[in-house]
Computed example of a mutant assay.
Amino acid sequence: MTETRSVVVERDIPHAPEKIWRALTQPHLIAEWLMNNDFVPAVGHRFKLSGDWGGVLDCEVLTVEPNRSLSYTWNFAHDDAAYALQSVVIFTLTPSPKGTHLRMEQVGFRPEQKQAFGGAMAGWRQFLAKLEEVVAREG
């Protein structure tokens, strides 16, 4: 089996897990911080994420534990194997004294996918900063 790498980004957000959960699971809010989508928080639901860059990700919901954990596949098909990606994104919400500790892990980068790994590391930091702005605005 090929060894893979993971991108992990963690943030402490001064809001309750329930507020962050809404931003992780409501399509109109997901569109504000991540991408356009047809997401439904139901295990087995297949959905697409459409990026501003023209790419489309094929996804499937794997786990839904309201206000605690959410995971889904994050698959990008590409003719060049170096750019094709089959991964899983896992969000974990842990209540903290100041709100919620959010941990995002994207698992499945192959060793040769250095550019995709670096892009995901930078991209997730930006996505989660936007997520925090959406949560703060939604109050």
Rank of each mutant, 00 (worst) to 15 (best):
L131P: 02
G51L: 04
C59Y: 01
L93F: 03
A16F: 06
N37P: 08
E105L: 09
P95A: 14
V43M: 00
L128C: 09
R68E: 00
A82K: 15
M104H: 02
S87I: 10
F127L: 10
D80N: 09
L29G: 09
D12K: 03
V56P: 08
E65A: 13
V43Q: 04
P95L: 11
L62D: 07
A23W: 00
L85R: 09
M35L: 13
G108L: 11
G55L: 15
I20D: 02
A77V: 02
L70H: 00
H28V: 11
F39A: 06
R125Y: 06
R103Y: 10
A116P: 14
A23R: 01
P95R: 14
K98F: 05
L62Y: 05
E60L: 08
V40A: 15
F91Y: 12
A129C: 11
V8T: 08
E60R: 13
G119I: 04
R46E: 04
L128R: 06
K48D: 12
R110E: 15
P14K: 09
G51S: 04
V89F: 07
W74K: 04
I30E: 06
D79W: 08
K19G: 13
G123D: 09
A120S: 12
F117G: 07
I90G: 07
W33Y: 10
D80L: 05
T25W: 00
Q26I: 01
R68P: 00
H28Q: 10
V7S: 02
Q86R: 15
H78S: 06
S6P: 00
